[in-house]
Design a protein around this nucleic acid. Sequence first.
RNA 1: GGCGCCGUACCCAAGUGGUAAGGGAGCAGUCUGCAAAACUGCGAUGCGGCGGUUCGAACCCGCCCGGCGCCUCCA
Length: 501
Amino acid sequence: MLRIYNTLTGKKEPFEPLAPKTVRMYVCGVTVYDYCHIGHARSALVFDVIRRYLESSKYRVEFVKNFTDVDDKIIKRANEQGVACEAITTKYIDAYHEDMGKLGVRPASIEPKATEHIADIIELAKMLLAKGLAYQVDGDVYFDVAKYPEYGRLSKRRLDDLQAGARVDVDERKRDPMDFALWKSAKPGEPAWPSPWGQGRPGWHIECSAMSMKHLGETFDIHGGGMDLIFPHHENEIAQSCGATGKEFARYWIHNGFVQINKEKMSKSLGNFFTIREIFEKSEWPEDITGEILRYFLLSTHYHGPLDFSDQALNEAKNTLNGFYDLLVTRLAEPDQNSSTDRELGGAVERCKLAFQAAMDDDFNTTGALAAFQGLKTDINKLLSKGLSTEARKIARQAFRTIGNVLGLFQLDKWQFSSTSKITAFKEVSVSESLSAGMEESAAVLKSEQLPDTEIEAKIAERAEAKKKKDFKRADAIRKELNALGITIEDKPDGTSRWKR
RNA sequence: GGCGCCGUACCCAAGUGGUAAGGGAGCAGUCUGCAAAACUGCGAUGCGGCGGUUCGAACCCGCCCGGCGCCUCCA
């Protein structure tokens, strides 16, 4: 039985969707005015995994994730560059898909844009005005928070406690400082749509209410996003949605914690952020391996807590994955006639499945889920040493692939083990540096990539000959030579050797 | 001023009442010509501090200390 921590109630609750075997879920995406950073990646990944787990639990998941494509920051960016807003939003929506794709984040079932739902937004605002929950000032429409008595139930705040104007000037035209705009009148040079209140554009919060209700119905199951959206964004969504329909809006609210740098929130305003593409660019690993490392790193902490980003953390994730992929692409790929432990494999896989499911059922505890894979890894390594047939090895490999698919891990067929490469997101690489010191560091991997397998095999054969003749000096020299190229040789008990980059 | 999150071994990190998962690093052993990998063992009598509730607390309550976040836009 799946249990989810619900921000609305502050408790872990059993999850029961409104309609049997169907989950309707809405996640707040990004405002598309710049490249995404690793914090956006965490959020996208967390909900991607939640979606995958629900699907693997035999739910049909209707997953809506929006793009905010009308906003002050977009307008500012467009004006700076002297281009239309659409040029900005199109560019960064494409970049979003590209970056998230590298992380293995699947597109949502529906990815609506605010600008494509202006009519729905206007309808919602009209409804709120008609119900007396909103009011008009000049060409603006504001939600009247005083008319929604439950305002603050998500963020656990009371209106009286909020320090209005603490950090921003209060608009004197509003009845309450907490009232928020549903519709903003157009200023010159801004994108605008006709409305009953004149030319204008939607406020930020209303698009999510309009789009979620349009695509998922007035009441749906899960609404998610980053912690920073709890107030005011999600609070306001609840107020205007419930105010308009008189029904409950989203039933389970899920919020992911922040990615931090040195214990501080990663954010644009602090300037302490790393974009996803920047990390891929600075990584010395191939793209698919870097993606796997990032994914493992982001899932190694429970989604609700903070997660500190550092080169060390990334490289630890790499080391851990080395252990998995050594098993998956090296040891399990070796043929064997000995089937003496084949019948024990099923039990090991079953144990992993159960442990995995128990962890994921407990509020999507991906940390525990990864521990389940560690258990399977250890079990299979033991079986291998006692004898596991080629056929059983394929089954073992498939188990990792199948269960791992829920986390989007363990799908790669190739891996690089070399310990000379790194991810150094923090290192500022200048051109001259990369030509000297930086190059040296990654030189081994570059060389090993260029070296054809056949040449390596030839060297290995030569070394085997030397070993046979007890010419260990020669054998060690060859090993050292290959090692300098980032290739590790492992001798097996039968006198043959395996190698890996 | 209000609300909230976090503080578990060298590092990362699960665990929300029943006696501390897992990983990384390290050390020792098995294996090996050596090495690597794998496997085995070692590693917090203690979970920021002090009290309290309980047969029993990392987990509940109170106070305190430290770090962070939100109350502008923010995943």
